[in-house]
């Protein structure tokens, strides 16, 4: 079996999150970098890097540049 990579950001560390209550039907996987989560029985456009749409792909640069919403406020100073 070839190693699974993240369909969205191509990261090579993928975590196993859940498995089907009926054994062997599907697993839920999650990317260790961009946190994309998918079920192994989803269509290829959601599960395979080569079929994953360009417009939804993420690069390490985009992940690093992601804006914080809402911004973490300053701590209140002790009075």
């Amino acid at each position: 079996m070839t190693a699974v990579i993240c369909p969205r950001c191509a990261h090579e560390t993928v975590d196993h999150v859940a498995t089907s209550p009926v054994p062997g039907v599907w697993d839920v996987l999650s990317c260790g970098r961009c946190f994309y989560m998918w079920r192994t029985t989803e269509p290829e456009r959601r599960t395979r890097r080569d079929a994953y749409p360009e417009s939804f792909r993420l690069t390490p640069e985009a992940i690093a540049a992601a804006q914080e919403v809402p911004a973490v406020p300053p701590l209140r100073t002790a009075r």
């Binding site: 859940a18 839920v28 999650s30 946190f35 994309y36 989560m37 998918w38 989803e42 456009r45 959601r46």
Partner: peptide, 19 residues
Amino acid sequence: ADLFRVLPLFRLNDGDGGF
């Protein structure tokens, strides 16, 4: 306290980041 054991979670749209 595992959400996957209690809820049959699933994805909505193709570009969603997850469930």
